[in-house]
Computed example of a mutant assay.
Amino acid sequence: MKKPEWLDEDAGPVVRPFALIRGRTRSSGDNFDLIAVVVPTGASAPPEAIIGPEQHRILELAEEGVTVAEVASELDLPLGVVRVLLGDLKDHGLIEVRPPAQVSPLPSERILKEVIHGLRAL
């Protein structure tokens, strides 16, 4: 089994996940749904933006459209950390987080009964 890049066998974790986000636990990404889709905006990073390697990886993943849960899995980071990283990218205008697609409502019971009766009549 391949060990995560941020682990050192002798020393333990080299960079703790929450060090990546400078100890912050809140961001504009707190409300992102697990199945919301992350896509790039195509904008350039503003000069004041500090984009770390994890955020560069998120931008790469977002090229194909990826869910918040998939980002956390791919980066092997806790969801809270990923939400802060995503929030930072969104605040800089680099990504857009789209809500999950709406599922169409289920057909009514009356329609289902009519279909069943129609099939039985055949």
Rank of each mutant, 00 (worst) to 15 (best):
P47T: 08
G87W: 03
L77E: 07
P13C: 12
Q102S: 11
L79K: 08
S73T: 15
V71W: 04
G23H: 07
E63N: 10
G118H: 13
K113Q: 14
P17N: 02
I111K: 13
F18N: 12
A62E: 04
L112G: 07
A45W: 01
R120G: 00
G52K: 05
E54R: 13
L119W: 07
P40N: 11
A49H: 04
I116P: 00
P46F: 03
L79A: 04
R57C: 01
L34Y: 09
L94I: 05
S27E: 07
P46S: 06
S104Y: 12
P40V: 11
V115Q: 13
A19C: 08
G42Q: 04
T25D: 12
A36P: 03
V38I: 09
V81D: 00
R120A: 10
L75F: 08
K113N: 11
L59M: 11
K90M: 14
V97T: 03
F32T: 03
L106G: 07
L75E: 08
G52N: 14
S44A: 15
D91T: 10
F32L: 10
P53C: 07
K113I: 09
V66A: 02
P46R: 03
G93K: 01
K113C: 01
V37L: 11
W6Y: 15
P53N: 14
L61H: 01
P99M: 09
D76M: 12
P78K: 02
A36T: 04
E60R: 10
P13I: 14
Q55V: 03
A49D: 00
G23V: 06
V103Q: 11
V115H: 08
E63Y: 05
G23C: 08
D76S: 14
I58E: 02
S108R: 12
P17S: 03
L119C: 06
A45M: 01
